[in-house]
Design a protein around this nucleic acid. Structure first.
Ligand SMILES: NC(=O)c1ccc[n+]([C@@H]2O[C@H](COP(=O)([O-])OP(=O)(O)OC[C@H]3O[C@@H](n4cnc5c(N)ncnc54)[C@H](O)[C@@H]3O)[C@@H](O)[C@H]2O)c1
Ligand SMILES: NC(=O)c1ccc[n+]([C@@H]2O[C@H](COP(=O)([O-])OP(=O)(O)OC[C@H]3O[C@@H](n4cnc5c(N)ncnc54)[C@H](O)[C@@H]3O)[C@@H](O)[C@H]2O)c1
Lengths: 213, 213
DNA sequence: CTTGGGTTGTGAATCTATTCACAAGCGGGC
DNA sequence: GCCCGCTTGTGAATAGATTCACAACCCAAG
C-alpha cells in the first residue's frame, strides 16, 4: 500500500484523466494489458511519469506484463470519483451553456445536469430536453431541492462573482467557471476556471517568440 | 535589462494574461498606478510572484510607487503578441464553433476569424456574419490564400488528428484543440488542448477526496 | 537636506515536480 | 527448475517553480 492521503498535485490528476481516456481507447481496440510506455505514448507523457502517478494511489500493474486495462479503468474511475453520479447545475442558458448541455460526455461520465438557470424572461420556462430553465431568483430553493453539488457558470463576467457566492452559500462545493471573472470563495470550495483568453494568448505569445527568427 | 530570451514557463504566461485583465479593470476604474500586491490580489497570486514574473521581461515599475497601469498594459500586450492581428480559422461549424464565433473577445483582442470549415453539406455555404462556411476539401487552398496562422479545432475527436496534420502542412503554426483527441505534431507547432472532461474530473476528484470526512 | 513609509527588482533558499536508475518480480521457453 | 527478456515500483538525483529577504530606490513632508 503506497499512501492513504498525501497531497496530490493538480497535474497528476489531469494526467490520470488522460490515462483513463487512453485506457478506454485501448479497451475498445481489444487490448488486455498496457505498459507504462504505451500509456505514456498515448497520453503524451513519459513512462516513469505514468508509473510514478499510478504508484501514488496503489500498485496496479504486474511486473513483466504491464497494467491490466479493464481493472485499471475501474481503479482510475474510483480515484477520480466517477463511480457515482454528480448533480450539476448550469447557470446561464446562452451559447456556451447550450453547447455544454448537448455534450454527451456529461451523461456518459455521470455528470447529470439537474437544473438550468437564466434571468432572461424569454428563456425562463423553455425546456432543454427534460430540464426546464428556471429563473435565477429560484436559485437557492432549486439547488437545495435538487441537492446540486457542482455548478457550471456560463453567465457574463459581471454577475459571475455574486452568483458564485450564492451557489456556495446554497451548499455547492465545486464550481467550473467559464466567465472571465475572478471568484473569491472560501478555501473549501473547489474552483476551476476555463479561460479562453488565456489559451489563445498562450498561442500568440509562443508564435511571437518563435516566428521572428 | 533583465534577459533577452531564456525559457519562459507556461504558468508565467498564463499569469501575464491574468495581470493584463486585472490592469484593464484597474484602468477602467481610473487607477494610474498599481502595486504588485494589488495586482496579486486581483489575479489570485502573490506579490513576489507578480514582481518575479514581470522582472523576467524587464523593469516596468517604480520603486515606492508601483507599476504605471497604462504603460504596463502596453508592455504586456507587446509581450503576449497582442499588438498585431492574428488570422484564425475555425474547423467545425457546430455548437462550440458557433459559441466561439460570436464571442466578442476575438475581435477585441485582434484574433480575426477569417475562415470557417465544415464537411456537412447543410452547413457549407451558410454565412456567419461576413464569413462563408467553406467545405473542408478547400482547407489547404483557403488557409494559404487567407494566410491563416492559428487553427481552432471544434470538430469531433475522430477527424481531429488528421485535420491537425493537414493544417500544419498548410503552414499553420498554432492550434487550439477542443476535440478530446491527442494530436501528435512536429515540435515547432504550438498546441493547446482544452479538455472539458479533465476540468470536470478535477472537480469530482477534489470533491471525492474532501467530502468523505 | 534628511528622514520615513512604501515599493520594486532579484539572488538565495525552499519547496515541488519530474526524471533516472535499478532491484524486484513475472511468465514463457527449454 | 532455471534462465532470460521484459516491466513495475520506488528511493535518489535532478530540474524547475515559488517564496523569501533585503538592498536599492522613490517621493513627500518637515
Ligand atoms: N462564447 C464563447 O465562446 C465563450 C468562450 C469562453 C468564455 N465565454 C464566457 O462564457 C460566458 C457565457 O458566454 P455565452 O457566449 O454563452 O454568452 P450568452 O450571452 O450567449 O449567454 C449568457 C447567458 O447568461 C444569461 N444571464 C445573464 N445574466 C444573468 C444572470 N444575472 N443570471 C442568470 N443568467 C444570466 C443570459 O440571459 C444568457 O442567456 C461569458 O462569461 C463569456 O465571457 C464564452
Ligand atoms: N459541446 C461541448 O460543450 C463541448 C465541450 C468540450 C469539447 N467539445 C468537443 O468539441 C468538438 C465539437 O463539439 P460540438 O458540440 O460543437 O459538436 P457538433 O457536432 O455540434 O459540431 C461538430 C461540427 O464538426 C463538423 N465536422 C464533423 N466532421 C468533420 C470533418 N471531418 N471536417 C470538417 N467538419 C467536420 C460537423 O459537421 C459539425 O458541424 C467535439 O470534439 C467535442 O467533443 C464539445
Amino acid at each position: 500500500m503506497p499512501s492513504p492521503d498525501r497531497k496530490i498535485s493538480e497535474s497528476t490528476v489531469r494526467r490520470l484523466s488522460a490515462y483513463l481516456r487512453s485506457l478506454e481507447a485501448l479497451e475498445a481496440s481489444g487490448a488486455e494489458m498496457a505498459s507504462s510506455g504505451e500509456l505514456a505514448r498515448r497520453a503524451g507523457t513519459t513512462a516513469p511519469q505514468v508509473r510514478k502517478d499510478l504508484s501514488t494511489f496503489g500498485s496496479f500493474g504486474k511486473r513483466g506484463l504491464g497494467y491490466p486495462v479493464v481493472p485499471l479503468i475501474g481503479s482510475l474511475e474510483a480515484i477520480l470519483g466517477l463511480t457515482r453520479e454528480w448533480r450539476v447545475a448550469l447557470l446561464g442558458a446562452g451559447r456556451v451553456g447550450a453547447a455544454l448541455h448537448t455534450y454527451p460526455f456529461f451523461r456518459e461520465r455521470g455528470f447529470r445536469i439537474v437544473a438550468i438557470f437564466d434571468n432572461d424572461p424569454e428563456k425562463v420556462g423553455l425546456r432543454w430536453d427534460d430540464t426546464t430553465i428556471r429563473h435565477i431568483d429560484e436559485l437557492e430553493s432549486v439547488l437545495a431541492g435538487e441537492a446540486v453539488e457542482i455548478a457550471i457558470l456560463t453567465v457574463p463576467a459581471a454577475p459571475a462573482p455574486a452568483l458564485a457566492d450564492r451557489v456556495v452559500r446554497a451548499g455547492v462545493g465545486a464550481i467550473l467557471n467559464f466567465a472571465p471573472a475572478r471568484l473569491e470563495l472560501p478555501p473549501h470550495v473547489v474552483v476551476n476556471e476555463v479561460n479562453l483568453a488565456m489559451e489563445l494568448e498562450l498561442l500568440s505569445f509562443a508564435l511571437t517568440r518563435s516566428e521572428p527568427r
